[in-house]
Amino acid sequence: MATIFNDTQMTEFKRLVARYPEGKQKSALLPALHLAQDSFGGWLSTEALDYVASLLQIEPIEVYEVATFYSMYNLKPVGKFVFEVCQTGPCMISGSDNIIDYIKKTLDIKPGETTKDGLFTLKLVECLGACGYAPMMQVGKIYKEHLTKEKVDSIIAEYRAQASNN
């Protein structure tokens, strides 16, 4: 995958930078990294980080510092669908352990691993602000809430179908 924004992505990048005053374009770094991650296959390679640095006219180190600090930036390749399951107190007392175990067993992977077909990655994360709708996980831009084993099955089936249609 080429690490260079296409026209639509570049238009979006310019919109992000335009929010900030002259000379404060570094402020667009976090949103720009999200855009790069979404554009370049769900993770940020060193090339991608350097590219963002050059676009924002800042030093690569300034980008590395930020990319390694925040939990949403993947610095290694991930599966097509990343299951980010919340494991913090409120979710834990609402049964997240069972859901995590079930996903591990069903996909036959441990947290941090990706299935052999490259479809699913399991990540354990901390509170996502959905504590009242627990157990829950984030997949891409959306939240899957009130999880049960049955619901996990149908979510996996749904993504498998989606992947084979593409």
Binding site: K24, K26, L30, L56, E62, V66, F69, S71, M72, Y73
Partner: peptide, 24 residues
């Protein structure tokens, strides 16, 4: 502006740093 996933950025001065494109 979207953050990048960091509870500490709720603390107001960390939030400001983050809004400036830095670590929180």
């Amino acid at each position: 502006q979207r953050g990048g996933g960091a509870y500490i950025c709720g603390e107001e001065t960390a939030l400001i740093e983050s809004l400036e494109g830095k670590r929180g």
